[in-house]
Computed example of a mutant assay.
Amino acid sequence: MCVNYTPTRRDQLAPKFAAIDQTGEDWRPEIWQDYNAPFITHDHLKRRRAQLGSYGMVPKTKIPAGVKRFSTMNARAETISELRSFAQAWRDGQRCLIPLQNFFEPNYETGKAERWQIGVRNNSDFAVAGLYQGWQDNDGQQSFSFTQITINADQHALMRRFQKPEDEKRSLVILHEQDYDAWLTCTTPDLARSFLKLFPAEDMWAQAAVLSKPQTKSNAAQLVALPIQKSLFDE
């Protein structure tokens, strides 16, 4: 699973993703649940466009009063067609690209959780498969939210090295550039499932990162970079 990532920079939306920037405002350098970040869809002319949405398919502001807050940052591929939070968007083809620089996972190989940063080799920005939905706000405006799709990674040479030893290993669905438009225009759920594959481990990198919690005034001074270790594939 992924609960925290570094989004693409605004200056990469056009050159890297060929997307028209319709975000309207800036976003934070690291994204956590309910933070706004860019996601990419097709417009009515099949052009890629970047809009701003809340990370998590059901934002906390949309959870009914009295209902305990729940996480929808990640949609498991195995249950995406069944769970109410995702099923309608999955059936309706509301697929999107979520542009990243890298994402974060805990590594327990030293016996304790250490925050690690993961990305794609020779490719500073990349996109993962996601779903989005629109919301009608009280002021009459429309807002958006999105989720990242994850798949089992128990046998993946890199991603199996993250999360607690006893936990199932999961990975985001990193898409190849040549598949971006095909993913966005999938007409059926069955066709969409053909894109839900693990990205080659040899084309990824991972290294130690920084403190694994959102930056606030109270902990900003603690965000000191750890010594950079070799990539797990440079050892």
Score class of each variant (00 low, 15 high):
T216R: 05
T216F: 06
S218C: 07
N219A: 04
S194H: 07
C186A: 15
T216I: 10
T188P: 04
V210A: 07
F199G: 00
N219D: 04
A201F: 01
D190N: 14
A201W: 00
W183C: 02
Q215K: 10
A220H: 04
A182N: 05
Q215N: 07
W183L: 03
L198Y: 02
D181G: 12
T187A: 15
M204W: 06
T216L: 07
P189L: 13
D203W: 04
F195M: 09
Q178K: 12
E202Q: 10
F195Q: 09
C186L: 11
T187K: 15
E177W: 13
A206Y: 02
D190V: 15
L184V: 00
K213P: 05
K217M: 09
A208T: 12
A208M: 12
S218D: 14
A206P: 02
Q207I: 05
L198I: 01
L175P: 00
D190G: 14
I174A: 01
A208R: 14
V210R: 12
C186R: 05
P189K: 10
L175S: 01
T185R: 14
D203Q: 14
K213Q: 12
M204F: 09
W183G: 01
S194A: 09
D181W: 08
D203M: 12
L196H: 08
D181Y: 08
L196K: 10
V210E: 08
S212Y: 08
Q178N: 12
W205E: 03
F199S: 00
A201Y: 01
A221Y: 06
F195S: 09
L184E: 00
M204H: 05
S194T: 11
C186W: 04
Q207R: 10
I174L: 03
Q207E: 11
M204V: 08
N219K: 04
P189E: 15
T187F: 15
L191E: 15
C186S: 15
L196F: 05
T188C: 09
R193C: 11
L184P: 00
A192H: 11
K197I: 06
K213I: 14
K217S: 06
L175M: 01
A220E: 06
A206M: 02
K217V: 09
L211Q: 10
P200N: 01
P189H: 08
L184N: 00
Y180Q: 04
C186F: 08
Q178L: 11
R193G: 09
S212K: 10
T216V: 10
K197T: 11
I174V: 06
P200A: 01
S218N: 09
L211N: 07
L191I: 13
T216N: 07
L191A: 15
E202M: 10
L198H: 02
S212H: 11
K217Q: 07
W205M: 03
A220W: 05
V210P: 10
A182L: 05
A209R: 15
F195N: 08
